[in-house]
């Protein structure tokens, strides 16, 4: 019983961290129809920034700076690698995303020397707490609530502000939105900024739990988060959050059995099942193809 609870708690916590990454994927996909393969690496870079900045600055200064720099990175990636390809076929943009991911990973290997780095201990978040007889870190408990608060705030932004309305319009129809006088480029930038900021927060929570950061540390959480976004219905923010919790719990349940090797395979099997049986995911809108 205690074991089951600890598995469930860590599943929910990891799920919350995936949710923060998944929102970045789902928002970008909703607007650009692009799988932003570099998003997982942005998440990893946020982790590395956390390590380097906290080595020279006090935490209360380092963490906001991490957030700021990650946002800048996300913004620059969009401007440099995706904007020039706006009229190109979708495949070119996706290849560009893969290229960016390759570049970030290689640069990170160059800078860190490829060795795993240890994430700094954030006081309070890393403290141990005992819940239902199982010791765990505070971050595990706080993550789901933090995620819910952030998602609610994001929903407010999207549904009740001018920027949010523009985002919804662009997601609905790119060209018409442009004709209606919406500045597409700035809206897309805002999307990337929000996504990167959430990824940065996600990285602080995730790497407090799993402290070793290697240059490829972002790839797998990134892929899992993407799967979560698809499971929830890509383009839908509540969908991404629900999907992320499902993925997080599934992964931890599989990890707790003897089939540990299959924890990622299980995630992907779920993805394929969803794609085949219900391609629009749990919350996605049905789209009909027009010739």
């Amino acid at each position: 019983m205690e074991f089951a609870i600890s598995v469930l708690i860590s599943g929910i916590s990891v799920g919350g961290q995936y949710a923060l990454i998944a929102i970045g994927y789902t928002m970008v996909y909703g607007i650009l129809r692009l799988i932003n393969f570099a998003h997982g690496d942005v998440f990893m870079v946020a982790g590395l920034l956390g390590i380097y900045l906290s080595a020279s600055l006090p935490l209360y200064a380092a963490l906001p700076l991490v957030l700021l720099l990650t946002v800048a990175l996300g913004f620059c990636i969009e401007r440099a690698a995706y904007k020039p390809l706006r009229s190109a076929p979708r495949m070119s943009v996706m290849i560009s995303a893969i290229g960016v991911s390759y570049l970030i990973q290689n640069t990170a290997t160059y800078i860190t020397g490829g060795q795993p780095m240890t994430y700094p201990v954030i006081p309070f978040l890393s403290d141990t707490v005992v819940i239902a007889g199982t010791p765990t870190k505070w971050v595990t408990i706080l993550t789901p609530f933090l995620v819910l608060a952030l998602v609610l705030a994001l929903q407010q932004l999207i549904n009740h502000t001018k920027v949010g309305m523009a985002m919804r319009a662009v997601a609905k129809d790119f060209e018409t939105a442009q004709l209606m006088g919406i500045r597409i480029n700035s809206i897309i930038s805002v999307t990337f900024i929000i996504g990167s900021a959430l990824a940065a927060i996600g990285s602080m929570l995730y790497f407090t739990n799993f402290q070793a950061i290697t240059p490829t540390a972002g790839a797998l959480p990134g892929l899992r988060a993407f799967v979560a976004a698809v499971v929830g219905g890509i383009g839908s923010i509540p969908g991404a959050v629900v999907g992320a919790f499902i993925i997080g719990i599934c992964e931890n349940v599989i990890k707790s059995t003897e089939f540990t090797v299959f924890s990622d395979a299980g995630t992907f099997a779920l993805l394929i099942l969803i794609l085949v049986l219900r391609p629009t995911g749990l919350f996605g809108e049905k789209v009909t193809d027009k010739v």
């Binding site: 692009l34 799988i35 979708r90 993407f226 698809v230 992907f268 794609l275």
Partner: peptide, 24 residues
């Protein structure tokens, strides 16, 4: 199952299968 999917969904599904094969 997979070839019915379109562009990027196909990409991510085949990628998933490659990971599954690796795990097996």
């Amino acid at each position: 199952p997979v070839l019915r999917l379109k562009s990027d969904y196909l990409a991510i599904a085949t990628l998933g299968f490659a990971e599954i094969i690796k795990a097996v």
